[in-house]
Design a protein around this nucleic acid. Structure first.
Lengths: 210, 210
DNA sequence: TCTGGTCTTGACCATTTGATCAAGAATGAA
DNA sequence: TTCATTCTTGATCAAATGGTCAAGACCAGA
């Protein structure tokens, strides 16, 4: 919650740099071991700082966690904002799936951090889920409903469609060890991308379109 | 790994009963707080035993965890075995999705325990993933390929289809706080079930079938 | 160079927690 | 009832861990 760094609203060069180091290290460690499984020492070591020095920037372990979590949420949700009701639903949803998959490949740690938080009851982001997130999702759900009404896609429960897209795309990050164990060396981003789009979107094309 | 309970292969009535209590309590606590977030005291309290007494049945905390995890895997995978290559693919896959969803509603703790384990690198079940699980999944993937070859369903990457089904169905257990926050009181099992089947399976119907 | 604020750290503390153990209580077969 | 085995627990320990603090090093503007 409180960032600590002393009085001045103005950040020092060193402050900026070290906070960045800490956030990057914390993301890696928290996402790998969970909140309770992570020690302040681990984060400090990964960031190349001493433990007291790290605690100079973030007074409590929880402050680091919250900072990393909030820092991640924005990026993670950005693609959803792009859904445009004026454009073609199939193309829009396909693009959204691709964007989410790209995030999973590029930053799996962020996905896992988020998954872990929710898996354990989302104690730090309850307000966010019921506030900003719900607002955005409800809006995009209405876009889907709009598409359905216009006959541009088959009827579907919009919220559940969004859940399905999230579930499938984040699965490749969150369950990576399982995916790799089962696909072996055959794991290919392009193939996964194509399969995900086909599975999730094929059935939504309006009846007359093929 | 090692179960401890002394020499006799024969289990006492009390042994059987207390081990059961412990496994149930451990599933609840581990799935809620993760491995590191769980204390032996918590499990003992939930099971109604003293800590030393609990450690009489399972020597180490990790032994309890492994026992619960293995105990869960079998049940969790059972529905997949039922996929029958001789029957209709759409009906078979729909039934599989329903069965998996039913598990998520009935035993979300098991789903979360499993998700947490994989999320953190699957350190305890690596062999299982690459062994028994891979074997089963490869076999069922070949069933899907068989269906495709016979033209009974559209071409699809079989492993990715299985991933998608897992992802969507388990999402309702693993991300329950998010689902509830976004659906509010509108969360309805039947609706979710219908939506999941439609989204995942609709696009797989062969072209001429509608 | 001087100086006030910023940054860094070794030493330390209190608490939590996994695990042990000896001693006693309960159990059940003969 | 007897008694060997199984079961239970209060007391205790060592290690891990989040967090503090005082003292010193460093930095940048005047």
């Amino acid at each position: 919650m409180s960032k600590l760094p002393p009085k001045p609203a103005q950040k020092t060069r060193i402050q900026h740099q070290n906070e960045q180091l800490i956030l990057e290290a914390a993301l890696a460690v928290f996402s790998a071991y969970g909140y309770r499984g992570t020690t302040v020492d681990q984060i400090a070591a990964k960031a190349g700082l001493s433990k007291p020095n790290l605690l100079y920037y973030f007074r409590r372990k929880e402050d680091i966690y919250v900072a990393v979590l909030e820092h991640t949420l924005t990026e993670w949700l950005a693609p959803l904002r792009l859904l445009d009701r004026e454009k073609d639903p199939i193309e829009e949803l396909s693009a959204y799936i691709s964007a989410k998959l790209e995030l999973s490949w590029r930053n799996p740690a962020a996905s896992r951090l988020f998954a872990n938080e929710i898996l354990h009851g989302a104690p730090h982001i309850e307000k966010y889920l019921k506030g900003a997130l719900k607002e955005l999702v409800d809006e995009k759900a209405s876009v889907i409903t709009h598409w359905v009404k216009e006959g541009r896609m088959r009827p579907v429960a919009p919220h559940h469609l969004i859940f399905a897209i999230w579930a499938v795309t984040q699965h490749y990050a969150d369950f990576a060890p399982q995916v790799e164990a089962l696909l072996g060396p055959h794991l290919d981003h392009a193939t996964a991308n194509q399969a995900a789009i086909q599975i999730l979107v094929q059935g939504l094309k309006p009846a007359e379109s093929h």
